[in-house]
Simulated assay, not measured.
Amino acid sequence: MKIKQANAGALTNFEVLDFLRSRGATSDPMGCLGSVAPSECKVFDYLFHSAACNQTRDAVNEFLKRCEKFRLAKAEKLNIINLRPSGQAEIYPIIEHCDKRLTRDEAKGIDQVQELVDLVVEVLPPKPEEIVDDQEMPNETTLEQN
Score class of each variant (00 low, 15 high):
A6D: 04
A8S: 09
G9M: 07
A10N: 15
L11D: 06
T12K: 00
N13F: 14
F14H: 05
E15F: 02
L20K: 08
R21E: 08
R21V: 11
G24C: 02
A25E: 02
T26F: 00
G34M: 06
S35P: 11
P38F: 08
S39Q: 10
S39W: 07
V43R: 12
D45R: 07
Y46I: 09
L47M: 06
F48E: 12
A52Y: 03
C53M: 06
A59W: 00
V60S: 00
N61W: 08
E62T: 14
E62P: 06
E62Y: 07
F63K: 01
F63Y: 04
F63M: 01
C67E: 06
F70Y: 07
F70C: 00
R71A: 11
L72C: 01
A73V: 07
K74P: 12
A75H: 12
A75T: 10
L78M: 04
N79L: 12
N82R: 01
L83I: 12
R84Q: 01
P85M: 03
P85Y: 05
G87C: 13
Q88E: 14
E96L: 11
T103M: 08
A107I: 14
K108A: 15
K108Q: 10
G109V: 03
G109T: 10
D111I: 04
V113R: 04
E115A: 01
E115N: 02
L116I: 04
L119H: 01
E122P: 01
P128Q: 02
E130M: 09
I131L: 08
D133T: 07
D134E: 15
D134M: 07
P138G: 01
P138Q: 02
P138L: 05
E140F: 13
E140M: 12
T141W: 14
T142P: 08
T142H: 08
